[in-house]
Design a protein around this nucleic acid. Sequence first.
DNA 1: TTGTAAGCGTTATCAG
DNA 2: CTGATAACGCTTACAA
Lengths: 348, 348
Amino acid sequence: MTTIRELAARSGVSVATVSRVLNDYEDVSEKTRRKVLRIAQELDYTPSAAARTLVTQRSHVLGIVLVTGESHPDLQHPFLQEVLVGVKRLAGEEGYDLLLFATADTGNGFGTPDLVKRCRYHRVDGVVLMGVHAHDPEVQKLSSSNIPCVAVDLDLLGRRTGYVISDNVAGAGLAVRHLREAGRTRIALIGGPTATRPGADRLLGYREELGRLGLPYRDDYVQEGDFYAESGYAAMQTLLALAEPPDAVFAASDLMAVGAMRAIEHGGLRVPDDIAIVGFDDIQLASLVRPGLTTVRQDGQGLGVAAAEAVVRMLVKPDVSPPVRVLPVELVVRESSRAPAVTAGVGG
Amino acid sequence: MTTIRELAARSGVSVATVSRVLNDYEDVSEKTRRKVLRIAQELDYTPSAAARTLVTQRSHVLGIVLVTGESHPDLQHPFLQEVLVGVKRLAGEEGYDLLLFATADTGNGFGTPDLVKRCRYHRVDGVVLMGVHAHDPEVQKLSSSNIPCVAVDLDLLGRRTGYVISDNVAGAGLAVRHLREAGRTRIALIGGPTATRPGADRLLGYREELGRLGLPYRDDYVQEGDFYAESGYAAMQTLLALAEPPDAVFAASDLMAVGAMRAIEHGGLRVPDDIAIVGFDDIQLASLVRPGLTTVRQDGQGLGVAAAEAVVRMLVKPDVSPPVRVLPVELVVRESSRAPAVTAGVGG
DNA sequence: TTGTAAGCGTTATCAG
DNA sequence: CTGATAACGCTTACAA
């Protein structure tokens, strides 16, 4: 591997000058610059990130914390992949590479040994967190460190820690309102874990919109799932067993929505004729399933881009206060929420 | 940040001794070891990867090349995510972290500027490639460099480059045989791009199995897609327009299979009654769709683990020849390939 | 068993 | 505009 010293020797200048050329300093004669650049090209010179990092104390690398538990590897959640694409894109544009912390999955749910230490070890300039629990002690430690952090879908705050998240409250409202407009009045919720911010916010939005619409809030219409399909199936079975089952369900994730669809089908009922369904996320699955799933679209890549942007901004302006960004969502109407076929258009 | 020098001073020993302790050398008195370790703990000492890398010329970081084009970001392909999970898991166990090269997506299909340079820059010890084209010049350069590489689902070979791949030929054979056993005789293929190894191998397996079963190979029964749903839909439409449409379709990916299902449905026919379908991959979607999609299961995580293992092995034993591993696949039978309801059980 | 000291490949601070 | 040279934090002969 050719080093800056060799490059300097061949160019007939000092290493300092070569460094200046390489870093685009102004105070270098055009002639010298050209010569160094030409020889660098010839020798296929490649600088050493390690050496640079050592002396500048900056790595131009962003850490990605992404817990992949074993039961439900979060990396496998389609939504987080999109976020990662967004992060990767913006990071690339800004000249950062991504260090994916390869935590050996401990399987205990808190599989993130010594996050802060790993960040310091690699000297990552900032961190994007996704798929983690806000109450994971390691996550807490990280967010209270002085390393710039931005969490996705997680309200994590600290001196140098902010977050980006979708407007879950409004999204849930959109879903419920849409169902009401489709003629439904007994609207149930299959929610996410209320211990998560998205879970809690979607419940809140559901409840608030019910209020605005003058519909009663019923405890037995609220089931809690874990965002995955099986839990949606189970929750729907509970709802179907009710004395007065709902005629519509808002599920806090597309996967749970599809699980619910399967349970409805299994119970001999039909979507949307007997029960309308709206999901949340708009993952690929939503458009591929039949009937097509009406859902609240989250801008996954947008969240990723926003998160990376926020980290970079904190890097550039060290005294900016940590960002809190809420991204809008939109309703995507497909077939799963069509109004039931009625005999005549009586009544509003 | 506390450095090894400070740690040495506080411990009353030299930096060399501290280094020995930190690196688990044997020739250190138990007493010294304990003391250094204790003080390291107290000071929350964290070594510097940059400094280590600079002197040892090893980074303990594996590069991940994962092209995320814009039309079909490969990172979004559910299958590759699983591979990544596998890579991450094994890398973590072996003490490696992952550097995700954040290539600004150029959108020209070959969006991988100067891969070799980036690897050298970060001094990654090895590389796992996924979602890339074998004929991408940058990929070629990388595979002919002396950096240990392992490609996934791509037959890339070089002095220090090997690959891991599923047994696509056998998998296609399983699918076709299964369809025949389900009573189908006019079995079409919606293949992947033959320019890709999986595409070519699944076509080969299809063709060979047809031969073994004594079924004719018909050009008009072979359509080429791009592994994504829309292309499956389009291909199926072409097949349906044939004078003698197939009574079964083997699609080289689950997404294309689902696309095909939609086209069949749209044409007023039914799966599996009129046309049976078998996919490839067994992504989450396959079990969530109705009818459940019979498919050839690839072990995504297994491929990831195998790839990472292979890279690490090349690192440990520098003169081992690059690996070529073919992982088995298995048929997962669901509803989309049930035998058509027949009046009587006549004929084998 | 431990210490000394020479790098690893850069950047940055001085002078000149 | 350019050149010495001192760091950056660590590992590793080589000595002791």
